[in-house]
Design a protein around this nucleic acid. Structure first.
Lengths: 247, 247
DNA sequence: ATATAGATCTCGTCA
DNA sequence: TGACGAGGTCTATAT
C-alpha cells in the first residue's frame, strides 16, 4: 500500500475514533521509563480508540513496544517515509516509529464495554479456606477474610483452640521466599499491634507447593506449610477435555 | 464479511503461516489456570505465526484473553456461527471463542527476528552505582555487582571503612515494604553465611523514592535509604522534548 | 525443570 | 493521589 494512501486512511480513521491495525516495516525508538531501540523489521501495529498503541513482532505473546491509553498519537510525513509519534504526558515517555512500508491496513468502529467474569483467583482460594477451615487444620477457626484492614492485607485471619492468632497466606502457585517474607511481615505486624509475643501468632502458608528454600525459611521462623490446591484447577480442564474429545 | 468467506481466508492464511488480524463480534470462555467468561462484544483478534492468540477489547493496554505461543488453533463451523478453539497442552488451558460476525480480516507473512536494545533497567542502575560508589556514600567500596551467586541476588555488594559489609538493593521506582523485606532477607542471609552479627552488615536501599511505611520499616531495622535516580531518566526526556518542540 | 526476581510491568482497591 | 499486592502475570537467568 502506498504510504500516501495509508496516511489518508489513518487520519480518517483517527478522526472517526475507530480502532486501527496495520502491518508494516518499521524502526522504533522509545524513551521514558527506559530507553529502547528496535531496528527495522515487520510488525503488527494496533492503535485503539482510547489511544493505546501496541507494537507486536510476528512472534511472542507480549508487545515489543507500547504506549498506554491516552497517548497523543500523530503521523508525520518525512522525505521518504512516515514518522508515527506517540507521546504520553502522564508517564512522560514517547515512541518514534519510522514507517518504511505498509503492507495492509484495517480500521473499524468497535462497540464493547463488557467486563470479564473470572473465577479461580487468590480471593476465591481464601474464600474456600474461610468456608472450609478444616482444610488448614481441625483447630482453625477463621474470623475474617479481609484484605484491606488496619491489620494489613491478610488473606485469612483467625485463631486456634489454644487462643493463638492464626494468619493464613494463600498463594495459587509454588510459594517462594518472597511469599514467606510476606507472611513473616504480617505475623510481626499483628504481634506488634496486638501486643502479643511472636509465639502466640501462628503463620500458615497455604499453597499447592513450596520451594525448598522457602520451606526451610518457613520452618526456621516457626511457620507451617499446608498443601492446598486452588479451587477449580485441572479437574475442570480434564472434565471439559473429555467432553471435547467426543466432539 | 460473510463467515464462510472469513473461514476460507483464515484457513488459507494459517496454511501459509501468515500473521492474522481480524475485527469481530464474539463471546469468549477461558479455562485453565482460572475460569473466565466474556460476553458478546466487538474485539480485535490477533493470531501470530507462532500460534499466539491475542484478544483485545477496543480499550485498554492488555489483552482481555490470550493463549501463549505454540497453541493449537482451529476454526470450526457451527450451525449459525463459528467456533475458534485454541488449546495449549503445556499450560493445560484453552479458549473457546464463539464468532458471530466478522467485520474485517487481514493477513500477511511478516519477516522480523530483530532483538530490541534496552537501557535504563535495574541492572544499569546497579552498574552505575558500582562505577560511581560515591553516589551511595564516600565510605562505600563496592566489591561486586553480582546477581546470582551463593550469596543470593544482591545488586551491589561491598564494604565501608569500618570493615562492615554493605549490601545495596536498587529499585528504579518507589521502594515499597516488599522491597525492604527483600533487603532484610539478603542482610540476614549474609550475616548468617559470614558468621557476622547483624550490626556488621549494613543494608542500603537505593531508589528514586520510598513509601512512608517502607522508610519506617527500613529505619526500624537499621537500614538506610539513599535517593538515587535510575540512569537516563527524565533528563533525556526533557532534552529530547526540547529538540522535538523545535521540529 | 525449578527457583528467583525484574518489568517501560499493568491493574484494582482502599485509605 | 499514593500505597500495596495480585496477576490466567510474563520473561530472563542461574542452578
Amino acid at each position: 500500500m502506498e504510504l500516501v494512501e495509508f496516511k489518508v486512511k489513518f487520519q480518517e480513521s483517527i478522526a472517526r475514533n475507530e480502532s486501527i491495525v496495520f502491518f508494516c516495516s518499521c524502526e522504533i525508538a522509545y524513551s521514558g521509563r527506559a530507553e529502547a531501540f528496535l531496528a527495522r523489521g515487520d510488525r503488527i501495529i494496533v492503535v485503539k480508540a482510547d489511544n493505546t498503541l501496541l507494537i507486536h513482532q510476528p512472534e511472542g505473546g507480549n508487545p515489543i513496544n507500547y504506549m498506554r491509553p491516552g497517548s497523543k498519537i500523530e503521523l508525520q510525513q518525512l522525505d521518504s517515509h512516515l514518522l508515527l509519534k506517540a507521546q504520553n504526558l502522564d508517564s512522560k515517555d514517547y515512541i518514534d516509529m519510522q514507517i518504511f512500508r505498509v503492507y495492509s491496513f484495517m480500521s473499524h468502529k468497535l462497540e464493547d464495554g463488557i467486563k470479564q467474569e473470572l473465577a479461580g483467583n487468590e480471593k476465591d482460594m481464601s474464600d474456600m479456606i474461610k468456608d472450609h477451615p478444616e482444610i488448614i487444620s481441625p483447630e482453625f477457626k477463621p474470623l475474617s477474610r479481609e484484605e484491606h484492614t488496619k491489620f494489613g492485607f491478610i488473606d485469612v485471619f483467625g485463631h486456634d483452640k489454644k487462643g493463638n492468632i492464626v494468619i493464613v497466606e494463600c498463594k495459587r502457585y509454588t510459594a517462594s521466599l518472597q511469599c514467606v517474607t510476606q507472611l513473616r511481615r504480617y505475623v510481626e505486624k499483628i504481634s506488634e499491634l496486638k501486643g502479643l509475643p511472636l509465639e502466640r501468632v501462628k503463620g500458615i502458608m497455604a499453597s499447592p507447593s513450596i520451594s525448598t528454600n522457602a520451606l526451610d525459611m518457613l520452618k526456621k521462623w516457626g511457620f507451617e506449610w499446608k498443601q492446598v490446591n486452588p479451587p477449580k484447577r485441572l479437574e475442570r480442564y480434564n472434565r471439559d477435555q473429555k467432553t471435547l474429545s467426543v466432539f
